[in-house]
Every structure is written in structure tokens, then in C-alpha cells.
Design a protein around this nucleic acid. Structure first.
Lengths: 223, 223
DNA sequence: GATGATTTGTACGTATGTATA
DNA sequence: ATATACATACGTACAAATCAT
């Protein structure tokens, strides 16, 4: 009887729904401000309304959807100001992670960070945007883990997931790939030196650059 | 006019349940590690299991309860290490708020902060712990708002609510009241000067002191 | 402004999965 | 290890509220 759920490790149906709906939001399939009809979603995923409701509640707690009593749920429509505040928070949180990483990373973690970073230069030279984006995610995850603070990890992960819908195509801008690597390099160098303040500052600068790129992208689109 | 809505905004019963259960946890009525039986809670609050389930889901998203598939929910049992990481996060977040506050508070906000702070010295001299605690909450809320960053506000509020169960009696320790005021004073002074870095540093120091006091309390008590 | 239609909120029943003897 | 007991997860039914006409 386990044949059905063998593909991916799915705990409960609610979790599957959370990921499914979140994906549709992140991918842009469901647009900010768009209505999320429980019955429609239930039918679309061939489940009852109950798990959909719980999934929406969780997504609301994550901040991805907005849910008003008796009036249904919509994809969270973030204002430009709110978006800016989220990017600013992200920069601060990453700054914290980088600072802590510089002070606390194990030698193994440092080695992994550096080797991954060096290897990524190849992706830059080849202009492999997709692959660099994947590496980039891992790079930042290294910083989050390297901070050795579970709560900061949760906060930065939460913020990152909330920002996800607005970070598409961040590497499409001219020269962002090479610049991103240089900024990573500054962070890595500082961490290797064990210079927490420098690492934090470099990370803040880096994320702020990404933010500006994304904000330009978002405001460029018509909404 | 709907008379009820103006008094308290108790939209849905789920929200009421969230607050009710959260209160019982924060107050210590439900202890970390304690089982949260849906049927029992439903009976206790005279509602069906459905809103209880949704409330538990939300509380799980907030991190106050831990919910394992098919195995029920328990009040989140935080390890000493996790608790330390949360306090550390809190210090960082408050540092960010104080730094931003120093740079961004309106003149009106600055005036309110300073006047409240000066007025609170009276409470210290009179040894009014309860009232000072209430003021202290307001003081920190001022910093959160003064940062003018909605996302940071959410993060710091979330973290604060998670720490709430462990912050009881923080002012019972010898001399904490006067020391707290002095630390506040350093923060306020830096903000008035518009010195962001000094304000951030002062806030971090302040929260770390509170953390140490609370950690001693937690590890000292045997519940 | 009232009424009908649609959608959310709550109650409850059944089955599956987990823990215990 | 098998079976039994029990709590949870999901589905369905009904009530209440919102909106559209």
C-alpha cells in the first residue's frame, strides 16, 4: 500500500499541498493578489477541502498568502515598500550569518565553502546561469548553516522563501554573474581570515546588490 | 453597527483558539514536552476538533508547538542550545532595530522614546517591577516600530513571542531593574545622537544581559 | 435594501497510521 | 510479532457569512 507515495518523501497530504501551492506561487503560476479558491484548489489536486484549508493556513503563517476571515485567501500582494523592507532584512540576516560563520565555521565547513566557491568560477566563465544559480543557493545555505544558530537559520530561511517569488531572473542582468562571484569572493576571503565584521559587511553589500537588481526587475514589470 | 467587532477583533474561532492555547503555553499552564490532545482541547474549549486542528497548525508554524505526522502535537521543548540561539537572535534583531531607529526615527518617535524612558526612572526608584516590566515591553516595541521595516518588525515580534515562555521573572534578579534602565539609557542616548552603530551595539549588549539572566533562571528552575 | 448564490467556517464520521500489550 | 486500542488525517455535511443581483 505504499506504492502511491513512493516518488518523493511526502509526510502528510497537507505538506504536499503546501509545497504544491507554494511552488505555483513562486513560479508565478498564481499571481500576487490572485484569489485562492479552496474548492478549486481541492479539485485541482484531487483532495478534499480540509488539507487545502490547513495548507492555506500554513502558507498564511509563512506570509505567502493573505487570509481574511470569511473572505477567502489571496496570494500576498506585497507593496514596493514591503518588498524593500524584506530585501533589507535579508541583507541584515545574511550579514549576521556571514559574521557568525567567520567566527564559528568548522574547518571542514570552511574547506567546503572555499572549494565550492573556487569551483563556481568555472560556471561564471562559461556563462552557465542556471547552474550558477543552483550553486548560489547552496553557497548561501552554507552561510546559513555555518552560523551555527538554529533560530537565525529559521528566520533567514523563512525570509528567503518569502522573497523567492521576486528573485527570478536575478542573473539575467548584464554582468551580474561575474559581479556576484566577486562579491562571494569578498565574503569567503573574510570568513577564511576569521574577520567577522568584514564578512558581515561583505554579505550585506552582496545581498543589497541582488536586491537592487531584483527591485529593478520587479518594478520594470507592470503591476 | 455590529457592536461586537469594535470591542475585540475575534474574527474566527480558530484565532481565539490560537490565542487561548498560546496563552496557556506562555503562562506555563501547558509545559514544554506536554502532549496536546485534540479531543481534550476541543472539549476544554467547547468547540469541535476542526478549529483546534487549525489552531495547532498555526501554532506549529509559529514554532510554539511541535507537530509530528500521525503522532500528535506537543508543546515545543526547546533545548538549552536552541534557547541560547533564540536569545542570540533576539540580540541581533534588536541591534538591527536600534541601529535603524537611530537613523530613521521621526522627531516625534524620538521624543516619545526619550520621555517614556525618563519617566520610567521613577518606576526604578520605587522598585515597581510589574509596572517597569510593562514599560519595558513598550520600550522595546518602540524600537521595533522605529526601525521602519515591516519585515524586521515581524521577525522580531515572532522571536519575542517564542521567547516569551522563558522570560518570566527576568526582573526578579538582584539589581536587574536599575541595570536595565542604565542599558536603556545607553540605547536612548545613542539613538538621540543618531549614532546607529552605537545604538545597535548597546541594544545587543542589553538583550544579551537579559538573556543571561533568563538562562540562569531557566536552568536554575526545575520545571 | 433584500434575496439568492457562492464560499468559507465548523461539526462530525470513518479510515489509516502509531503506539502498547 | 500480532493484535488491540487509540489518536490523527481526511472526507463529507451543514451552518454562517459574504457577494452579487
Amino acid at each position: 500500500m505504499r506504492a502511491k507515495k513512493n516518488l518523493i518523501r511526502d509526510g502528510t497530504t497537507v505538506d504536499v499541498m503546501v509545497r504544491a501551492i507554494a511552488d505555483r506561487i513562486v513560479v508565478g503560476d498564481l499571481k500576487p493578489g490572485g484569489k485562492l479558491d479552496e474548492a478549486t484548489l481541492a479539485e485541482r489536486f484531487a483532495v478534499s477541502r480540509t488539507p487545502i484549508r490547513e495548507a492555506l493556513a500554513q502558507l498564511a503563517a509563512m506570509g505567502l498568502v493573505d487570509r481574511r476571515p470569511n473572505r477567502g485567501a489571496i496570494v500576498t500582494a506585497v507593496s514596493q515598500a514591503q518588498l524593500a523592507s524584506m530585501f533589507e532584512s535579508m541583507a541584515e540576516l545574511e550579514g549576521i550569518c556571514a559574521r557568525f560563520s567567520a567566527l564559528r565555521m568548522t574547518s571542514h565547513e570552511r574547506a567546503a565553502l572555499e572549494s565550492g566557491h573556487q569551483a563556481s568560477s568555472r560556471l561564471v566563465h562559461l556563462g552557465k546561469e542556471e547552474e550558477y544559480e543552483a550553486y548560489n543557493t547552496e553557497f548561501h545555505s552554507c552561510l546559513y548553516r555555518g552560523a551555527h544558530n538554529t533560530h537565525v537559520f529559521e528566520l533567514v530561511t523563512l525570509t528567503r522563501s518569502r522573497l523567492a517569488p521576486f528573485r527570478r531572473a536575478q542573473f539575467r542582468l548584464s554582468g551580474r554573474l561575474a559581479k556576484s562571484w566577486d562579491e562571494h569572493d569578498a565574503i569567503v576571503t573574510a570568513i577564511m581570515r576569521g574577520d567577522g565584521n568584514a564578512a558581515g559587511e561583505a554579505a550585506r553589500v552582496h545581498v543589497n546588490k541582488v536586491s537592487n537588481a531584483s527591485l529593478v526587475f520587479v518594478s520594470g514589470s507592470s503591476d
